[in-house]
Amino acid sequence: MRIDILTMFPELVAPWLDASLIGKARRGGRLDLRVHDLRAGADDPHRSLDDAPFGGGAGMVLAPEPVFRAVEQAAPARPLLLLSPSGRPFTQRWAEDLAAGGSLGLLCARYEGVDQRIADHLVDGEVSLGDFVLAGGEVAALAVVEAVCRLVPGVMGNEASAREESFAEGLLEYPHYTRPAEFRGWAVPEVLRSGDHGRVDRWRRAQALVRTARRRPDLLAARGGLSDADRALLAEFGMLGELDGTGPVVAPGEDPLS
């Protein structure tokens, strides 16, 4: 997997890429991560990248000449995506597609954004982390890098983790517990200590359904709602009535399927 990141601040990005699982995979040759300084495309003594916007207005805009020059010099992997709040929302499915593609470039904007000709004629698309604005694209680029790279075979220690986590099947992930079995009066659900792996799997699936229905009903709707099998599973753990609005309300923080 090759990923190129083009940024005004390579010193912010480079150390992060050498840490944790990403850094280990990079040193092991599974990931080819390259950081390029956009200022390499500047041709004035101040290495300027920005200029005032035509028509007036607040802030500065990344100019096309130095950015085009920097990208053409770096020859980054494609598709080259611009980090932008007006871009296509980033999703787990998109991360999977990018990981499968084997290469990716990320262009980090700053200030008020980029000259529109960069978006129209230099990059292959725009990506957004959500409906909020950052000072620049570096944090967003690193989020994309981690989401994509952890799906590359051999990067994560346990490949099953990527299959079972949130959004892998359009559902939020089930809750996790570890030792001790009881902490300050709060016990780990009995089912997780039962040794019945089939029941544990069903419980986790039911938890994922309940959590998604409560916190992200839009995700459940996108899956077509609850299937007959889902309803049977929730009924097994006494949760179907609650989701249908006929059962007890579970207080925040309480485990609904324990």
Results as ranks from 00 to 15, higher is better:
Arg2Glu: 06
Trp16Leu: 05
Ala19Phe: 03
Ala25Tyr: 06
Ala25Met: 10
Arg26Tyr: 01
Gly28His: 11
Gly29Lys: 10
Leu33Arg: 01
Leu33Gly: 02
Val35Arg: 03
Asp37Gly: 06
Asp37Ile: 03
Ala40Thr: 14
Ala40Trp: 01
Pro45Trp: 09
Pro45Leu: 04
His46Glu: 09
Leu49Asn: 10
Ala52Ser: 15
Phe54Ile: 05
Phe54Ser: 11
Gly56Cys: 08
Met60Thr: 09
Ala74Arg: 06
Pro85Lys: 05
Gly87Ala: 08
Pro89Asn: 04
Pro89Phe: 03
Phe90Lys: 06
Phe90Cys: 03
Thr91Asn: 10
Arg93Val: 13
Ala95Ser: 15
Ala100Leu: 08
Glu112Phe: 08
Asp115Pro: 14
Arg117Thr: 09
Gly130Asp: 05
Phe132Leu: 14
Gly137Leu: 04
Glu138Val: 05
Glu138Met: 06
Ala143Trp: 01
Val145Pro: 02
Ala147Gly: 12
Leu151Glu: 06
Gly154Cys: 08
Val155Lys: 10
Gly157Ser: 11
Ala160Lys: 13
Ala162Cys: 02
Ala162Gly: 11
Glu164Tyr: 00
Glu164Cys: 00
Glu165Pro: 00
Glu165Tyr: 02
Thr178Asp: 09
Thr178Lys: 03
Thr178Glu: 01
Arg179Pro: 01
Pro180Gln: 12
Arg184Pro: 00
Arg184Gly: 02
Gly185Glu: 02
Val188Arg: 07
Glu190Arg: 14
Leu192Phe: 13
Arg193Gln: 14
Asp196Asn: 13
Arg199Ala: 15
Arg199Pro: 02
Arg211Ser: 11
Thr212Tyr: 05
Ala213Lys: 04
Gly224Tyr: 03
Ala229Phe: 01
Ala232Val: 09
Phe237Glu: 05
Gly238Glu: 04
Asp244Ser: 14
Ala251Gln: 15
Asp255Trp: 00
Ser258Ala: 15
